[in-house]
């Protein structure tokens, strides 16, 4: 089932074309990541889906409803923006209560759900604290609690991790996976490519208002014949490391800084297998992590970065 269907969508700000003839579908039970540099049109697209902006051309359907004509679909979405404001004089709980009333929630149900979501985002102890005393990360978590309050089927998150510390980012990402596993759909944009790599089932790469790639990270990587970035944590510096580029011609760039080996590798079929075997055979102690979206991003936006 398609949760979001965007057809021939364009958005102009005066003479500036922010989105140019976008076509996109988001299927249910997935985490779809929107990736692109600043000014690519990510936030514009998200705001159009939430009808905070009006399209110049084209149509957007969410749960089959045209966003410019109906608002009932909004009962089933939760939106968290990057720079949204908060009612600073409200307490965390009152903030949730205020929004809950617009989703036909009241009384005991609202109280119970409010407490539950505050607990989920780790703000239960601050439920009676004023929002003005919150840090940016705490506000971001409160925003996520608001999104979860009415148990929407679609979460639209614009940079949900901005302002969070690494633990907070990890917590949010784990929470997003739990939410996806509970049958919800998540549409998120973020610059945190490594976290996106861990959670996104599909990614949508946007550049200058156009979608230039859409699919699973693996598919896109194959499509664009990209490079993969590898970060290998070495327990000790080994002379054999210097020979890697000779042994593996796929390795285009190699650098070692403070026992962290960075590799930029042209994707080949059995590279990972051969490479790991080599490391093991030569008793090189390591741990490894790949970043596909990082690779896609740097490949596509090479001229920018």
């Amino acid at each position: 089932m398609n949760v979001v269907e965007i057809k021939n969508l364009s958005k102009k700000y005066g003479d500036f074309l922010a989105l140019d003839n976008i076509n996109l579908t988001v299927e249910s039970h997935q985490i779809v990541g929107l990736v692109g540099p600043n000014g690519a049109g990510k936030t514009t697209m998200i705001k159009l889906i939430c009808s905070m902006l009006l399209p110049t051309n084209g149509s957007i359907k969410v749960f089959g409803q045209d966003v410019t004509k109906d608002v009932t679909y909004k009962e089933n979405i939760g939106y968290l923006g990057e720079n949204i404001g908060y009612y600073e004089n409200f307490t965390a709980y009152n903030y949730l209560r205020f929004f809950g009333t617009f989703y036909r929630m009241n009384g005991e149900k609202l109280k119970k759900t409010g407490i539950e979501v505050l607990k989920t985002v780790g703000l239960l102890n601050q439920s009676n604290s004023k929002i003005s005393t919150f840090s940016r990360g705490m506000k971001q978590r409160l925003g996520l609690a608001r999104c979860l309050l009415h148990e929407p089927d679609l979460l639209i998150l614009d940079e949900p991790m901005s302002g969070l510390d690494p633990t907070g980012k990890k917590d949010i990402m784990e929470k997003l996976i739990d939410i996806r596993d509970s049958g919800k759909t998540i549409f998120l944009s973020s610059h945190e490519l490594r976290y996106m790599d861990d959670v996104c089932d599909q990614i949508c790469v946007i550049k200058n208002g156009k979608i230039i790639a859409h699919g699973t990270p693996d598919t896109i990587l194959t499509d664009i014949k990209g490079m993969s970035n590898y970060v290998i944590l070495l327990k000790s510096r080994d002379k054999k490391i210097d020979e890697l580029q000779r042994v593996f011609p796929e390795i285009r760039e190699l650098s070692v800084k403070q026992n962290i080996l960075h590799l930029r590798v042209k994707e080949t079929k059995d590279f990972e297998k051969k490479f790991l075997t080599y490391l093991l055979q030569n008793n090189i102690d390591f741990s490894i992590k790949t970043h596909k979206i990082d690779a896609i991003y740097s490949q596509i936006f090479e001229e920018k970065t």
């Binding site: 009808s51 949204i84 404001g85 617009f102 989703y103």
Partner: peptide, 9 residues
């Protein structure tokens, strides 16, 4: 905060 209000049903 108006943006958040616009996302309400």
């Amino acid at each position: 905060t108006m943006g958040t209000l616009f996302t309400l049903p």
